[in-house]
Structure formats: C-alpha cells, structure tokens
Design a protein around this nucleic acid. Structure first.
Length: 126
DNA sequence: AAGATGACTAACT
DNA sequence: AAGTTAGCCATCT
C-alpha cells in the first residue's frame, strides 16, 4: 500500500463521452450528403468544438464504420493536405456517393445541411 | 504545469 | 480569390 496517497476517487477517466455524441451525429449523415465540422459540433451540443470533431472521429472504433468522409470544412473543402492519401480516399468515397467536386470544392448549398432541407421542401431538385 | 497542437471558423486584407 | 489573424478549447508533450 505504500503511502496510499491517492489523489482522489478512482483513476483519471478520460472524458471521451462527448465524442460519442459526435459519432452519433456523423453516423446519421445520409449517403450523398455532407456536414461541416461546425455543423457536427453544433448538432452534437458543443457549437464551439468544431476543432474537436476531427479528434473524436480519430478515436472512433474502426468496427463502427463511421462515415467520417461525409464531414468536410466550412469552405466545402476536404481538410486533409491535398497530396495526402487521406485526401484522395475521402474524395473517392464521396464521389462514389454522387457528391460532385468542382475545383476541389463541394457545393454545400446542395450537399450540405441546407441542401438536405432543400430536398425535403422541394423534393429532389436534381 | 505551461505551452504547443489541431480533420475549425469567421472576419478581415 | 487567396492569404492572414484572432478566437476557439480539450489533448498532447
């Protein structure tokens, strides 16, 4: 037992609970649509935590098969270096779902959160 | 313990 | 249109 100088109650538990909310939001992004990091942050209850969203997805268990590729930045761009494998992988997966890139950018008004609402109100604009 | 980091963003130049 | 700045805040070193 030595000194028994325990700093408190139990071992430090990494608070990754908030990440689960992020996973929940990302998991529900429909195929062929995207959300921005800010959108995910807001929808998961922490509007200021856009920068934490990427970290949460990094923690996601692979078995979860989280559609991480449907999260892009507010400029409609992929937030990986353009020459990285991750960039190409994300772009490929999005294009497979029908998301169109124009000059490296996705039209958020069409594929983003607002675009999804458009589909509800105007039913498939094509 | 304190400074650096980052899958961000909005505002400004 | 493209680059810079300031604010952000839990983690990481």
């Amino acid at each position: 037992m030595s000194t028994g100088a325990e700093t408190g109650t139990g071992p430090d538990k990494p608070d990754r609970e908030w990440a689960k909310h992020v996973w929940q939001v990302v998991r529900d992004i429909p195929e062929g649509h995207v959300l921005t990091y800010g959108d995910v942050a807001r929808l998961s209850g922490n509007p200021r935590w856009a920068r934490r969203v990427g970290q949460a997805m990094h923690w996601a268990p692979r078995a979860m098969e989280l559609p991480w590729h449907r999260v892009i930045n507010a400029q409609g761009r992929i937030s990986f270096p353009k020459d990285s494998p991750a960039y190409q992988r994300q772009k490929d997966r999005l294009e497979d779902e029908g998301v169109v890139f124009v000059k490296g950018r996705v039209d958020l008004a069409r594929y983003g959160y607002q675009g999804a609402l458009d589909k509800i109100f105007w039913a498939d604009p094509e």
